[in-house]
C-alpha cells in the first residue's frame, strides 16, 4: 500500500540579493534584486506502508523543505504530495491527524511548563481517549523512560531528554507516518541508542512508516531498509543501502598485522591501501573472492600475528555519492 506519493515536487524560494554598503542599500530599496532558488527541484518517490526510509543529503540539500511540504507546513511551487491518498495542502487537518513530526533542531514542547503539560494539550488536540493515552505513555516509558522526566519543566531537560519528550509528543496519537528531521543531532551514544530502539519498536509494533533525515550514518545502517539521497534539490540515489554499497564500493578490507612487514604483497585480488608499522590495510572486491581464501593464501607466504575483516564504511560511500 502506497503511504506517501510524491510527484515532480518543486519548491522555489525567492531570495533578495543584498548589495554592499550605503549605496547598495539605496539601490536595494529602489530596485531590489530578486533571485529564484530551487530548494526542491523535481523530486518523485513513493513510500510503502511500514517502510523506514533514510532521507540523506548534505546541508542545504533540501531535506527539511521536502519534509515540510509533506507535512503541510509549506505549499509546493508545483508537483504533488499525497499522504494516504489525500493532499496535505487541501485536507490539512485530516492529513496531519495521522502524522507525527519531530524537528530535531526545534522543540514543539512548552519551554516553561512541565513536560506532561505539553502531552496533556496534545491529548486534547488529537482527541486521544484516556485508554489509548495511558497505553501509549506506558509503552513509551518502557523504551524512553519518559516517567523520569515527565514532571520536570522542559527548560531544565538535557538535549537528549528533550528529544525523548519530543518523540513521545509526536507518537501519542499513534500516527501512521512519522517524520523525523535530524532526531539524533547533538545527542550522546546512550540517547541515540534509545531513540533508535524506539523507532525500531514503533515500526515493528504499529507498522508506522518512518522518514528519517540524519547525518549520522549509524542511524541509517541500523534502521533504514531504503535510502534516498538528494543534493541541490534533486534525487541522486534511491534504493536499499546494500545495493548502493555494492554498486559504488563493493569492497571489504582485510587488516593484517605481520610479525615482519613484507617488502611487497603480490596477490591478484588484493590492493594495498595503507601501511603502518607492521600493519597493512588490504582491499578486495567481495564478490570476486572471499576473506577466507585470501587469509589462507597470505598465511602460506607470511607470518601473520593478527587480522580482522572490515566492511566498507557507509560514510565513504555516501561521501562519494555527494561528490558525484
Amino acid at each position: 500500500m502506497v503511504m506517501i506519493d510524491v510527484q515532480n515536487l518543486r519548491k522555489d524560494f525567492i531570495v533578495s540579493k543584498k548589495k554592499k554598503g550605503l549605496r547598495g542599500a539605496f539601490v536595494d530599496l529602489i530596485k531590489p534584486e530578486k533571485e529564484i532558488f530551487h530548494a526542491v527541484d523535481d523530486i518523485s518517490f513513493q513510500l510503502e506502508k511500514g517502510e523506514i526510509v533514510g532521507y540523506l543529503g548534505p546541508n542545504g540539500a533540501g531535506k527539511s523543505t521536502t519534509v515540510k511540504i509533506m507535512c503541510g507546513i509549506l505549499q509546493p511551487t508545483s508537483g504533488s504530495v499525497m499522504i494516504n491518498g489525500l493532499s496535505p495542502a487541501a485536507n490539512r487537518k485530516e492529513v496531519v491527524s495521522k502524522l507525527g513530526v519531530v524537528f530535531g533542531q526545534r522543540t514543539q514542547l512548552f519551554w516553561d511548563l512541565r513536560l506532561g503539560e505539553s502531552f496533556e494539550l496534545l491529548k486534547r488536540i488529537y482527541r486521544i481517549d484516556d485508554n489509548l493515552y495511558q497505553t501509549n505513555l506506558k509503552l513509551m516509558d518502557d523504551v524512553l523512560q519518559i516517567n523520569e522526566i515527565i514532571d520536570k519543566p522542559v527548560r531544565q531537560l538535557s538535549l537528549g531528554q528533550r528529544m525523548r519528550g519530543d518523540l513521545v509528543a509526536s507518537m501519542l496519537h499513534s500516527p501512521e507516518i512519522l517524520f523525523l528531521d535530524e532526531p539524533t543531532i547533538g545527542l550522546d551514544v546512550e540517547a541515540k541508542y534509545s531513540i533508535r530502539k524506539f523507532i525500531k519498536e514503533i515500526n515493528q509494533n504499529f507498522g508506522t512508516t518512518v522518514i528519517l533525515t540524519t547525518h549520522d550514518l549509524d542511524d541509517v545502517e541500523q534502521l533504514c531498509s531504503r535510502i534516498i539521497i538528494i543534493n541541490h534539490g534533486k534525487i541522486i540515489e534511491d534504493g536499499p543501502l546494500e545495493m548502493l554499497i555494492d554498486r559504488i564500493a563493493p569492497y571489504r578490507y582485510l587488516i593484517v598485522d605481520f610479525y615482519k612487514l613484507p617488502e611487497e604483497i603480490n596477490h591478484p585480488e588484493i590492493e594495498v591501501m595503507k601501511k603502518e608499522n607492521t600493519r597493512v590495510w588490504l582491499r578486495f572486491e567481495k564478490n570476486k573472492t572471499s576473506a577466507a581464501k585470501l587469509i589462507s593464501d597470505l598465511s602460506l607466504r607470511y607470518q601473520i600475528r593478527d587480522l580482522s575483516v572490515e566492511e566498507t564504511k557507509i560514510e565513504d560511500v555516501v561521501r562519494q555519492v555527494y561528490k558525484s
Binding site: K68, S97, I125
Partner: peptide, 13 residues
C-alpha cells in the same frame, strides 16, 4: 522565526 510550523502540523484551525 518560523513559529507557525507547530500549529500547521496539528489538526485544529
Amino acid at each position: 522565526r518560523g513559529s507557525f510550523d507547530r500549529f500547521l502540523v496539528r489538526p485544529v484551525g
